[in-house]
């Protein structure tokens, strides 16, 4: 589904991602963990298209996408969320989700004047779909509120609903659990698992090992820009190299 082939990213003299290769298979939930500064977020941005790799290739299904801009990746079925959620603050929850619809001809200028009936029909169908997604993430009562009124956890849920509106085949989740209160976290985790059961692939960057252990069948560990090891969450948690990497900087 998604594959990094010998991907490197340099910032000036700093090598943030160093010759990283891995694959994410269709329908799995893969985890990407590592201590702060390991290059997880850089790797994530390379996959999502916000950064271009210095060298190496990124394959999404059958296409190489490392040079295509972020907006082009959605048409290949790749969606993402942000570490700090980025809702459209002045737009309502409903409008936020509607923006993500992919099949609306009304997003081109002319059809709004030439075929308004068709735009309206698509819009009604999209509103219905958006409403069911908003209910799905338990934001139903807030659908008409501007997104700036949502709490941090609710914003994560909104971003989740928004990316699902675009019918992605694979979703990159950047720290879905960070800063979320336990009640909402439970909602987020069960929703991710349910969507995965419908056939959507996930790659999750996360610090919280509990979250990783619950969701992911397979975990990649990144340290100092490289993939240190991969395996089942339980094996990883017990791996002395991983423990060393996380605690390595601490005084002995």
């Amino acid at each position: 589904m998604l594959e990094a082939q010998a991907v490197s990213k340099h910032f000036g003299g700093v090598t943030a991602v160093d010759d990283v290769s891995f694959k994410v298979a269709g329908r799995e939930i893969a985890g990407l963990i590592g201590p702060n500064g390991a290059g997880k977020t850089t790797m994530f941005n390379l996959l999502a298209g916000s950064l271009r790799p210095t060298s190496g290739r990124i394959r999404l299904k059958s296409r190489y996408v490392e040079t295509s801009p972020p907006y082009a990746r959605m048409s290949c079925g790749l969606g993402r969320t942000f570490q700090i959620p980025r809702p459209f603050a002045e737009m309502t929850v409903m409008e936020n989700v509607l923006v993500a619809a992919r099949d609306q001809v009304g997003e081109r200028m002319l059809p709004n004047w030439i075929v308004p009936g068709r735009v309206g029909r698509l819009e009604r169908a999209n509103v219905e779909k958006a409403r069911s997604l908003i209910d799905f993430v338990k934001l139903g009562r807030l659908a008409g509120e501007p997104a700036r009124t949502l709490s941090g956890g609710q914003r994560k849920l909104l971003e989740f609903a928004r990316v699902l509106m675009a019918d992605p085949e694979i979703v990159l989740l950047d720290e879905p659990a960070a800063g979320v209160n336990p009640g909402l976290l439970e909602t987020i985790l069960t929703r991710i698992a349910e969507i995965n059961a419908r056939g959507v692939t996930f790659l999750i960057v996360e610090h919280n090992m509990e979250v990783i252990a619950r969701l992911c069948a397979r975990v990649l560990v990144m340290v100092s820009g490289r993939i240190l090891c991969e395996g089942k969450p339980r094996e990883i948690a017990a791996d002395p190299r991983v423990i060393e990497a996380y605690l390595g900087g601490a005084p002995r």
Binding site: P69, F82, R86, P87, F88, E95, V99, G106, E107
Partner: peptide
């Protein structure tokens, strides 16, 4: 229209709009 909605989303946060497949 949906076109105007995309414009507003880009004004609010063009990186987020791009992540949803809109070319700012």
């Amino acid at each position: 229209s949906p076109w105007g909605r995309v414009l507003r989303s880009i004004r609010e946060d063009d990186a987020a709009a791009a992540s949803l497949g809109k070319n700012p």
